[in-house]
């Protein structure tokens, strides 16, 4: 379980996370929803310290950390070891082959044996239907394929949590589906995930828990059933806005 308490993040004079407290359960998929600019990415990035909030605490298994205190290299290493990030634009390393993209971190960072790591990586790639792409470069793959590789790259680090920031927002619907199917599988396998998405249908089908963020505040924290079937007025507006349902606006 990851528990955030009283997290505050300010950019210049704009408070992006306002004293936010939330937890992310183990083995579950937590979906973060909310309008653009509400602080979803900032929240997600605080979890693996890509963003450093000014105050608040994070409890993550055996690690407790106070954001307002200096973070040691070891603490940041340990936290990042428990998490892997999947980015909206996948951010694969263009100078490495698909296989190397998946294996370089386990081999260099975790000091895993090369042969075995490569074998495992090929299995991950096969699972996402990219076995025969192992020796190509990312630029030779479509966006959807690249995103699938980046999911393999994240999973190959054996993280406790996979963090995904709008993993399908840069993809057309067909490619999006390929990626969503893989994420659905991961979710079913009990992989702990925290996912930011604008795809409501997917959120509904995959989420065990939903968090709705607006203006750096958490307006909703509960089950998908509550969120979609018994929404508050604000959430209703949000959901109708996102489905282009003009009549309700």
């Amino acid at each position: 379980m990851i528990t955030l308490k009283n997290v505050v993040k300010t950019y210049d004079d704009k408070t992006v996370l306002k004293d936010l407290s939330v937890d992310f359960p183990d083995g579950k998929t937590t979906v973060i929803l909310g309008p653009s600019g509400s602080g979803k990415s900032t929240l997600l990035r605080s979890l693996d310290l890509l963003v450093r909030p000014e105050s608040g605490t994070i409890d993550f298994g055996d690690i407790s950390l106070d954001y307002s205190k200096p973070v040691s290299k070891k603490q940041s290493f340990d936290i990042r070891k428990k998490t892997s990030m999947v980015f909206q634009n996948w951010n694969l390393f263009p100078n490495l082959t698909v296989l190397q993209n998946v294996t370089t971190a386990p081999i260099t960072v975790l000091k895993r044996p090369k042969k075995q790591t490569e074998q495992e990586a090929r299995q991950y790639l096969a699972q996402v239907g990219l076995a025969e792409y192992a020796d190509r470069y990312p630029s030779q793959l479509s966006g959807g394929q690249q995103q699938r590789v980046s999911i393999c790259r994240a999973v190959a680090m054996n993280p406790e949590y996979v963090l995904l920031d709008e993993p399908t927002s840069a993809l057309d619907p067909e490619l999006e589906t390929q990626v969503l199917l893989i994420l659905e599988d991961l979710s079913k396998m009990g992989q702990s995930m925290i996912l930011v998405t604008h795809n409501m249908e997917f959120a509904r089908s995959v989420a065990d828990k939903i968090i709705f963020v607006e203006d750096g505040d958490i307006l909703f924290d509960g089950t998908p059933d509550e969120f979609f079937n018994h929404p508050t007025t604000r959430i209703k507006d949000f959901l109708s806005g996102i489905t282009f349902n003009d009549t309700e606006k």
Binding site: N91, L96, T104
Partner: peptide, 22 residues
């Protein structure tokens, strides 16, 4: 791109490893 650094850091590469490999 800065994103290459972010991706490397989330994978726990050190600055030196990020420079050399990426």
């Amino acid at each position: 791109p800065q994103d290459q650094w972010y991706a490397a850091y989330t994978l726990n590469f050190t600055t030196r490893q990020t420079l050399m490999k990426i």
